[in-house]
Nucleic acid binder design. Structure first.
Lengths: 112, 112
DNA sequence: ATAATTATCTTTACTTTGTAGAATAAATTA
DNA sequence: TAATTTATTCTACAAAGTAAAGATAATTAT
């Protein structure tokens, strides 16, 4: 198990956004977190495409919100990160940390 | 200035590999670092494609090695990360850190 | 009940990145 | 000059990023 492909750049952020929203992760809120935390303004369609792909890969799973919503609008689709998704996230972080490790030292600032 | 697109997943690793190699970054060594540090085994062709694109975007620059090499084989093409490249790298790191920030707390391990 | 309104999710299409494999190139040595 | 060595370039296609328009499904107004 664990064909261990790599997480795409954006996929990584989406997974993190879902994690930090825990029970409240669905299209709109995920998009909002992305905007609030890293000022990334993606279209809702772009986001869903990625959500769909992440789910196909088994990195997240979804459930439909309660049929009885006390407001207009379609039911929400809530997402959570699966164990495999968390693993992928950790692996990615580990790799990135490893690559940054000795670099920081020699990496003398960036002339603004 | 600073159209600030995002660094692709692999692009990021390549930039870091070049930085840590400083004066010695060219095709083969970059590939080797990627393999040694994060066990990523990409074809040399794949790597060059990315190097070419990074250079087109101005995130790295290159110079041809000394014409007089004391060994068989074509001249090396050395790469260095430009200021813009470093900036992109820092921005990416900053975003990633921001997204991970509060997550770590709620992110209770991964059941192996 | 039927038409607006509202809040979401889906589809479609296209651009950018990631990747490998085969082809070239340029220097050294037999 | 024909091998050999070390390296880069080309070609092609799959995967991921992204937007814009379209479709759904509730609720509320008429």
């Amino acid at each position: 198990m664990g064909k261990s492909r790599f997480l795409g750049e954006f996929e990584q952020y989406v997974l993190l956004a879902i994690l930090r929203l825990s029970e409240q992760a669905y299209g709109t809120t995920i998009r909002q977190v992305l905007f609030d935390v890293i000022q990334r303004d993606v279209s809702i369609g772009a986001l869903y495409t990625t959500l769909t792909r992440l789910e196909e890969k088994g990195l997240i799973s979804s459930r439909l919100g309660e049929a009885t919503a006390e407001r207009g609008g379609r039911a929400k689709k809530y997402f959570v990160v699966t164990g495999e998704g968390k693993r992928a996230l950790n692996d990615t972080r580990r790799s990135l940390d490893a690559m940054w490790r000795d670099v920081k030292l020699s990496f003398v600032g960036v002339s603004k």
